[in-house]
Design a protein around this nucleic acid. Structure first.
Lengths: 209, 209
DNA sequence: TAATATTGGAAAGTGATACTCTCCAAAAGT
DNA sequence: ACTTTTGGAGAGTATCACTTTCCAATATTA
């Protein structure tokens, strides 16, 4: 298909597709003559993936580029891809206090979580704890504990639902679920908070027998 | 204190403080003569709150302004403040398919969640579901179920940990926990995913007896 | 075959966001 | 008297994610 059809199929303007090509987010099509290139289904999928990560996942193009690079690394083991993709989602350098870092490591150890020592999520979590402390709120140990427990339940269910088989498909699904599952989870949490707060502040409509 | 000290105490450049004042994010100090204003602890707290929401929470200044406005509404009931603050975190208009919207409403009903009909989180959740579908991934009912259950556990623990007493303080803590708890939760989820994936793909270092 | 449309490629322009800098005159400190 | 600080306002800057404009080389259509 030509670029116009790719644009129609994905609802992405031609100019934007060209921009993504220039930026290396989308691999070039098969060149047919000097002024024509052919695109295929893989371009459609890739383009939809980019848009989903950008619009629903709220990722910057720079992060998306990193994620796609990690996804395309054919050489890696499956379990390494996830870590690489996760790392691509996060800033390169994250500063965290040794205290928070130690707290995170203790948490990982207590829960027996096998996590790559290089995972940036360790530092990110620590820095988030630091940020909370800087505004005078320190997260209770048992609240953090609840967070960890529920996160584990969530993650186990997610990983269990991952498709097996075609590697490319599995990897793409994994990335999608990580990036787009976040907003879903946060929205549900806010809804649950609204419910919990309604209960706590007695704002629930009571039945009148 | 003068603006210079406010800057020193919060590590925010004077120029930026002036900018926040212009933008109405920070209430003006008490004017003392034509070229001097006095600031107090409330300004320090507010400034730190703004920075925490922006840096750790990743909120735009426009959203922060909305959240602060909701927080400052003295007239509202406590349980309304949370909903208002949550709505301020989200875009004004969110488009979602009737199907997803219905699915969300069914979920709320099944879990007996009392949620304001105007809550934008309903639409946001539905639109996130739509986004997943658009890339060809539809969220399993039982995965969504797990999400909802864990979200409820999380939210209940959070609301239970909210301080009681000083209204302003409670409201600020609520907003902080919602905005900064998100990154914490997502980081933990990614770490838990890495662990779960390590198990699934047999990458766990086994003990050798 | 002539007229029109589309393409790849590159450069320049746009609008939003979040500052940052420069300037000023009034006032405060020394 | 002199240096520093302030409030206030405007202009300038950097980044991001496009969008527009241009071109010459093809394709398609009449």
């Amino acid at each position: 298909m030509w670029i116009a059809e790719l644009s129609r199929r994905t609802d992405v303007p031609v100019a934007t597709i060209k921009y993504y090509l220039r930026e290396g987010l989308l691999p070039p099509g098969e060149s047919v003559g000097a002024t024509r290139s052919r695109y295929d289904e893989s371009h459609v999928r890739r383009l939809r993936l980019i848009r989903a990560l950008a619009e629903a996942g709220g990722l910057s193009l720079a992060r998306i580029r990193g994620v796609l690079t990690a996804v395309d690394e054919e050489s890696r083991e499956m379990h390494e891809v996830l870590g690489a993709a996760h790392n691509a989602l996060l800033p390169d350098t994250i500063e965290a206090s040794p205290d928070s870092l130690a707290r995170v490591d203790r948490l990982l150890k207590d829960h027996d979580w096998q996590v790559d020592q290089e995972s940036r999520d360790r530092a990110l979590l620590a820095s988030a704890l630091d940020a909370l402390e800087k505004v005078g709120y320190q997260l209770d140990d048992d609240l953090l504990e609840t967070y960890a427990t529920t996160a584990q339940q969530t993650a186990e269910a997610e990983v269990a639902h991952l498709p097996s088989g075609d590697r490319q498909h599995t990897v793409e699904t994994t990335v999608l679920l990580t990036a787009l599952g976040g907003p879903v989870l946060l929205a549900l949490r806010r809804l649950a908070q609204q419910n919990a707060s309604a209960h706590r502040y007695n704002a629930v409509r009571r039945s009148c027998p």
